[in-house]
C-alpha cells in the first residue's frame, strides 16, 4: 500500500511539471520562452513518470524486462531532446523570429549581424 502511494506520488509530480510546461507553452510571450517552458515537460515531467513506471513494473507487475525498456525510453528522450531544442532555437533565430518585447541582452544578434 505504501508502495502504491510512492508510485502514485511520483507520477503526480511528473504530471504537475507537465501541466506547468503546458501552461507555459500557451501563455509565454515569445517563441524562445515557450521552448524554455516545454523543456519542463521533457525533463522532470518524463523522468518522474518514468521512475514511477519503473517501480510499478518491478514491484507490482514483477517484470524486469518492462522496467528496463521504460528506463531506455527515458534515457533516449534525455539524449535526443537537447539536440532538437538547440537546433529549433537556432533555426528560429536565423529565420528572423524575434520577441515582440526587445530582449534585454542579445549578444547573438550583435555578433552575427
Amino acid at each position: 500500500m505504501a508502495l502504491r502511494i510512492v508510485i502514485d506520488l511520483l507520477i503526480a509530480i511528473g504530471l504537475f511539471f507537465a501541466l506547468a510546461g503546458t501552461k507555459g507553452i500557451i501563455k509565454m510571450p515569445d517563441a524562445f520562452c515557450r521552448m524554455q517552458a516545454s523543456t519542463c515537460i521533457s525533463t522532470l515531467g518524463v523522468l518522474c513518470t518514468a521512475i514511477g513506471a519503473v517501480l510499478y513494473a518491478i514491484l507490482i507487475m514483477g517484470s524486469i524486462g518492462t522496467a528496463v525498456k521504460i528506463g531506455l525510453i527515458a534515457l533516449l528522450i534525455l539524449l535526443t531532446n537537447p539536440i532538437g531544442s538547440h537546433s529549433i532555437a537556432k533555426g528560429a533565430y536565423k529565420a528572423g523570429i524575434r520577441p515582440e518585447k526587445e530582449m534585454s541582452v542579445d549578444d547573438y544578434g550583435r555578433d552575427f549581424e
Binding site: 524562445f32 521552448m35 523543456t39 519542463c40 539524449l79 537537447p82 531544442s85 538547440h86
Partner: peptide, 12 residues
C-alpha cells in the same frame, strides 16, 4: 546538452 536540458537555458 546539459545546459539545454535544464529548463530556463538553451544553448544556441
Amino acid at each position: 546538452n546539459s545546459i539545454t536540458l535544464t529548463p530556463g537555458t538553451i544553448t544556441m
